[in-house]
Simulated scan of single mutants.
Amino acid sequence: MKLFQNFHLRFLVFSLFILGMVLILQQFLGHIISPSIWTIFYFVIILSYSVSFFALWLYKKSPENFLQIKLLGMVVRILASLTFIAVMVWKGEENIILFISNFFILFLFYLIFDIYTFISNLRPISK
């Protein structure tokens, strides 16, 4: 089970799970999935992975600044997400409400993953 403690592997397994859920929902309930779901999915994956990876890297460099690192990650994630939504709406997204709801559902799934990773790292930090 030491292998599953690797952040990269957990992120990959979680992303494959979300990918499977999106494919199933797209197959059976296509009307609740935005036509831009794959753009959203790739953006959220790249954003979440890069923010989490850099947060872990910064934490290894400076463990005493853990709270500031997590707050910086949240700010970067929110600003990048709002910028992405603004650009997609400006480009002329067809159904804006469906697009934004799909975006925030995926965003919240990856945010929950980040929170879970954060909580699982609290025990080693407290020692």
Rank of each mutant, 00 (worst) to 15 (best):
L16M: 15
Q27D: 07
P35Q: 11
F107A: 02
Q68E: 11
A80S: 15
F14Y: 15
F4K: 07
I33W: 01
T117I: 05
R123D: 03
Y110G: 02
L82E: 08
L111F: 13
L82G: 10
L58Q: 07
L82I: 09
V89R: 04
V13T: 12
V76G: 05
L111M: 04
V44C: 06
S101M: 11
G73F: 01
N95C: 08
F66Q: 00
L16C: 14
F7T: 06
K60Y: 09
S81I: 05
V13E: 03
F66H: 12
F14E: 01
V76Y: 06
E94M: 11
G92N: 15
E94P: 03
M1P: 07
I125F: 15
I125G: 03
F17G: 14
S126V: 10
H31W: 08
Q27A: 13
F11G: 00
K60P: 04
F103M: 12
G30S: 15
F7K: 03
P124D: 12
L47A: 06
L29I: 03
A55D: 07
F28I: 12
F54D: 04
R77D: 00
I37V: 14
T39M: 05
F28G: 10
F66T: 07
H8Y: 08
S48R: 02
I24H: 13
F53I: 05
R77H: 05
L19W: 11
Q5M: 10
I32F: 09
S101G: 05
W57R: 08
T39I: 11
S15V: 02
F7Q: 01
I112P: 07
Y49H: 07
T83M: 12
Q68W: 08
I85C: 03
E94S: 14
